[in-house]
């Protein structure tokens, strides 16, 4: 499998990356390359220029900044999976990172690359939505922040402009009393999500004050299951309420269908995995 020819550029700064993006038509950013290179090999994607941003220090690192967890776009899935800071502050992110691809993929693939690619079965989008992440991007006119809710616009489509670079992900660290979980039913061949459900619950004395639930794999893009959130908010955290709440897991979206899961089965799995995620976030 041989990609079509292209010119490779290694950006030495974010500014250079932006300049290269502006200078060259038909250019693609290359981070870990674990979404892009497979597509190049199959010639599904035939860019003339690749701009390598994988070495930029500005895109590295995981840190806490005044109540916000900031993850550089160039951080690998493996780094997130093993980060003590992530495990302590938003555990479901580490839990999810460890379920992405395989060891080799996690060693190289980056969160920013995955988000920009916006595969409807990728894990990160569900987590971004549930965590109400802000996605920071840098363009010719400076930096802007896009809420996760606005970022995923469709099937492999995002709000990221062609002349912009995704630089970091900012996740509000949830208040005390919050627990999180990510539960995934894997497509057995690719190990992408047939259903991935991220759940985050903040409770006071057994009552759910705040509930966030989001899915990936179910529809053409990841989505927040507001029906579940509303049904559970203000209710006691118990099996009965969870069971009642998850019934709306796949409502209001066009559920995908393929060899591995028909629309009906996927919808069922969405309910099952919502229950699992909500129960595990205890």
């Amino acid at each position: 499998m041989i990609p079509t020819g292209f010119t490779y550029h290694r950006a030495s700064s974010l500014k250079e990356a932006l300049d290269l993006l502006n200078t060259h038509d038909d250019a693609k950013l290359l981070a870990g390359g674990h979404s892009l290179i497979p597509a190049l090999k199959l010639r599904l994607n035939q860019p003339a220029h690749l701009i390598d941003i994988s070495r930029l220090d500005d895109l590295k690192g995981i840190k806490e900044e005044g109540g916000t967890l900031v993850i550089g776009a160039g951080v690998t899935h493996g780094e997130i999976a093993h980060s003590d800071l992530v495990k302590e502050k938003v555990a479901m992110l580490a839990e999810a990172a460890d379920l992405i691809g395989d060891v080799q993929v996690r060693n190289v693939g980056t969160i920013g690359g995955s988000l920009a690619h916006a595969d409807p079965a990728a894990d990160w989008p569900a987590l971004m939505l549930a965590a109400e992440a802000e996605i920071t991007v840098l363009g010719p006119n400076g930096s802007r922040s896009i809420s996760a809710e606005d970022f995923f616009t469709g099937f492999y489509e995002t709000a990221l402009g062609e002349d912009e670079v995704l630089t970091s992900i900012r996740i509000p660290i949830p208040p005390a009393g919050t627990s999180t979980s990510y539960q995934k039913f894997m497509q057995p061949a690719s190990r992408f999500a047939i259903v991935g459900c991220a759940a985050m619950i903040t409770r006071t004395n057994g009552t759910c004050d705040r509930v966030r639930v989001a899915f990936t794999g179910v529809a053409d893009k990841a989505y927040r299951a507001k029906g579940i959130e509303d049904a559970l908010t203000g209710k006691a955290y118990d099996t009965g309420n969870i069971e009642a709440a998850v019934s709306s897991a796949a409502e209001g979206v066009d559920v995908m269908s393929d060899h591995f899961a028909s629309e009906e089965y996927r919808s069922h799995l969405a309910r099952v995995y919502a229950r699992k995620a909500l129960s595990a976030a205890s």
Binding site: M1, Y8, R10, L30, G33, H34, I37, P38, K41, L50, D52, S54, G78, V103, Q104, V105, N107, V108
Partner: peptide, 19 residues
């Protein structure tokens, strides 16, 4: 095609030589 790049297992079919 797995090899070690700076000590980590990497699929060498999914990374450019120049990278």
């Amino acid at each position: 095609c797995t090899i070690l790049v700076d000590g980590k297992a990497v699929k060498s079919c999914t990374i450019l030589a120049v990278q």
